[in-house]
Amino acid sequence: MTSTAKVETKNLNLYYGPNHVLHDVSVQILPNKVTALIGPSGCGKSTLLRCFNRLNDLIVNTKIDGEVLLDGKNIYGNGMDVVDIRRRVGLIFQKPNPFPKSIYDNVTFGLKINGIREKKRIAETVEKSLNDTGLWEEVKDRLNTSALELSGGQQQRLCIARALAIEPEVILMDEPTSALDPAATFKIEELVSQLKKKYTIIIVTHNMQQAGRVSDYTGFLYLGKLIEFGKTNDIFTRPKEKLTENYISGRFG
């Protein structure tokens, strides 16, 4: 099967020390689509997400085998530049984690570490990223105030803007709304639907309604195994697996 997948895993296994966390996960993520990963807590969905930008490397005693392909290239292969992969694959964390710097410095952080110094380009990028996340009008007059003074929802959108500033290809979102109120959650979900025009998005969520609302494809993980993967509509209306059906209908989780 020749793949048009943006991101793909082949027989991915991951171990934290003696714990076998991911079992033979093979999945294809299509470009410009939103793919949701759902499953009960501890099923490995966040771990899988962090395989896509190699942030699991930071955890001691992690062992990975199998492949994770980005545009057909194994990101765990020899000679791959972790730093470059993380630039191409952005990650939005569960809890908004703006740096304790100004709003402006948060957005420009990624640019600066990537060696971009031109003032004009930086200013343009800041405006554009904040515009794309709908924050510009809200913060344009106080770009130099601390990002920590923003509300939770604004902080999360700032984190998304921060990721957009370095023009990633894929955006990973790890339960991005779990710390937010319904209004802020709604804004983020709207944003996700817009962003998929330009980016490939993978979102981990424990909220099935959310998965239903925002995603095109859904993968259901259980105990580290990818039980079922398909179009979101199919998964929610005609699940093939009993486990998926049980989970979707709220019989466990």
């Binding site: 930071l58 993380r86 809890k95």
Partner: peptide, 27 residues
């Protein structure tokens, strides 16, 4: 220094040293 400052920086494609210098040492 919260772990989130480090992970956030690394996730933006910073090298460990850039992360330490900009996002760990100051705090």
């Amino acid at each position: 220094v919260p772990k989130a400052y480090r992970e956030g920086s690394l996730a933006l494609g910073a090298t460990p040293w850039q992360t330490i210098r900009r996002n760990v040492l100051p705090y």
